[in-house]
């Protein structure tokens, strides 16, 4: 079976969040999702893998296999961890070139936009940027 695309996975996330009609439920779900994020090994929790621009600490690393990128992440704050779990879920295992060019409107559609906007100090923009940087790096490596 083909891997669902970034757009398809994003649509799944939007539909899941639509099941909750209050913000508290959405946050509870977000926090739960954070528990499923593929954990980054503690040995990678170093400044090299730290994403700046977050009020909490976030670490992210990526591996490439056959042109697809796999992400591992952690944060000491659960809401932040939930946010990054959404990104990891949508991106991981996708072709590097798709990640590098992906649009992420789904974040505006899950009903938490007050907290997911790029200007919030949750570092969401920095996380997306770092994931795309990994993807660009890997797609360049693959081409060579």
């Amino acid at each position: 079976m083909a891997t669902p695309s970034i757009a398809e996975r994003a649509q799944d996330v939007v539909e899941e969040f639509a099941l909750f009609d209050d913000w508290m439920g959405k946050y509870e779900y977000l926090i739960d999702l954070g528990k499923d994020v593929p954990a980054i090994d503690d040995s990678f929790k170093t400044p090299d893998y730290r994403i700046h621009g977050c009020q909490s600490q976030v670490w992210l690393r990526a591996e490439e296999q056959d042109g697809r990128v796999y992400f591992f992440a952690d944060s000491d704050a659960l809401i932040t961890k939930g946010l990054i779990s959404l990104l990891v879920r949508v991106f991981t295992g996708q072709p590097a070139s798709d990640i590098a060019t992906a649009q992420l409107e789904f974040l505006d559609k899950i009903g938490l936009q007050d907290h997911l906007s790029a200007t919030r100090k949750n570092g969401l923009a920095a996380m997306v940027k770092r994931m795309k940087q990994y993807a660009l790096l890997f797609s360049a490596t693959v081409r060579n």
Partner: peptide, 21 residues
């Protein structure tokens, strides 16, 4: 052991403006 950012985010959603960090 709740992270200040987590606590502040929920307080904000309740209309309570605090500073975290």
């Amino acid at each position: 052991d709740i992270h200040p950012y987590d606590a502040g985010t929920i307080l904000d959603r309740l209309g309570i403006a605090v500073r975290t960090g």
